[in-house]
C-alpha cells in the first residue's frame, strides 16, 4: 500500500484523477447505473421492443403533455426574462444599498427550499388565502379559481426560477465596461437607441444563459406543477410520476424520461455549439 502511494506520488499527473475518483465513483453508482437501468427498462418493459417509444411519440395524450411542457417552460422562461432583466438592471444601476437589498431578497428566495416556496403559494392563492380574501373584501361576488391552474403553477415556477435568470443577467451586466456606454453616448446614442444597439447586445450572453437554464430546469420540473398545477394540464415529469406510481408502467415512464433527457441534451448541445457550455454558469 505504502509502496503504491509512493509510486503514484512519482507520477504527479495521476493525482488529479485520484482526487476525482470518489466523485466519479459516486456519479457512476448513483447516476449512471440507474440511468442505464432506466434506458434498458424503456425498451424491455414489458417486453423487448420499441413499443413504449412508439406509444409516447404517437399517442395524442402524450403529445399534448409534451406540448404543454414546452409551452409552460417557454412561458416561464419568458416571464422570468421580463421580470429578471429589469431587476438585474436595477441591481446593477442603483445605489449600493438598493442593490444589496434586491440581491438579498433574490438570494433569500433562492436559498429557501422550493418545496417551502411551493406550499407558500398554496397558502397565498388558496380559497381561504389572502388574495381571494382581498378580492372578496373589495366586492367580488364570485372569485376566480387561482390554485390548481396553469396560472398558479406558472407563477410559482417563475418565482422559483427567476433567480437563475437574474443572477445570470446581472453577472453579465456587471462586467460591461462603463466606458463603452460613455463612448456610445459621445457618438450620439441615448435612451432607447443606446439600449437597443449597445446595452441589449452586450447583455445577450446573460439572457441566453438565463433562458437556457430556466427552460431546461423547467422542462423537468416535478413538485411545483404537480402540487399547484391543473391536473388537466400535466407536465411531462408529473406524467412520468403518475405512470410509475399509479400504473406501475415502468417501461412507459422510462421511455418518457429518456425522451425528456434527449430533448434536454439537444438544447444544451445547441447552446454549446453557439456559446460554449462552460459559460452556462457565468
Amino acid at each position: 500500500m505504502g509502496a503504491t502511494i509512493a509510486r503514484l506520488a512519482q507520477r504527479p499527473n495521476l493525482w488529479p484523477w485520484l482526487l476525482l475518483a470518489p466523485l466519479a465513483l459516486y456519479l457512476a453508482i448513483f447516476f449512471l447505473v440507474p440511468l442505464a437501468d432506466v434506458a434498458i427498462m424503456s425498451v424491455t418493459e414489458p417486453k423487448l421492443s420499441l413499443a413504449n417509444y412508439e406509444r409516447v411519440l404517437t399517442g395524442t395524450l402524450y403529445q399534448r403533455v409534451f406540448f404543454n411542457t414546452f409551452l409552460t417552460a417557454g412561458l416561464v422562461t419568458l416571464a422570468c426574462l421580463l421580470v429578471g432583466y429589469p431587476l438585474a438592471y436595477l441591481m446593477n444601476h442603483s445605489s449600493q444599498r438598493t442593490a444589496m437589498l434586491i440581491l438579498l431578497l433574490v438570494t433569500m428566495s433562492f436559498w429557501t427550499s422550493f418545496l417551502v416556496r411551493t406550499y407558500a403559494w398554496m397558502v397565498l392563492l388558496g380559497n381561504n388565502g389572502p388574495v381571494i380574501g382581498l378580492l372578496r373584501a373589495v366586492g367580488f361576488e364570485t372569485t376566480p379559481q387561482l390554485l390548481f391552474t396553469r396560472f398558479s403553477s406558472t407563477l410559482a415556477m417563475v418565482h422559483i426560477l427567476a433567480p437563475y435568470m437574474i443572477m445570470n443577467i446581472y453577472s453579465v451586466m456587471r462586467k460591461i465596461d462603463p466606458v463603452l456606454i460613455r463612448s456610445a453616448e459621445s457618438l450620439g446614442a441615448r435612451g432607447f437607441s443606446l439600449f437597443r444597439h449597445i446595452y441589449l447586445p452586450l447583455t445577450a450572453p446573460g439572457i441566453a444563459n438565463g433562458c437556457v437554464l430556466v427552460f431546461v430546469i423547467c422542462l423537468g420540473f416535478y413538485v411545483t406543477p404537480v402540487l399547484l398545477g391543473s391536473p388537466r394540464e400535466q407536465m411531462i415529469a408529473g406524467l412520468i410520476g403518475t405512470q410509475i406510481e399509479e400504473f406501475l408502467a415502468f417501461g412507459m415512464g422510462s421511455a418518457m424520461a429518456m425522451i425528456l433527457l434527449a430533448v434536454t441534451l439537444a438544447i444544451l448541445a445547441i447552446y454549446h455549439r453557439r456559446f460554449g457550455l462552460d459559460k452556462l454558469w457565468g
Binding site: 465596461d177 466606458v179 463603452l180 460613455r182 463612448s183 456610445a184 449597445i198 447586445p201 452586450l202 445577450a204
Partner: peptide, 9 residues
Amino acid sequence: FQNYALFPH
C-alpha cells in the same frame, strides 16, 4: 478612449 471602447458585438 484609453482602452478604445470599441463595441465588441
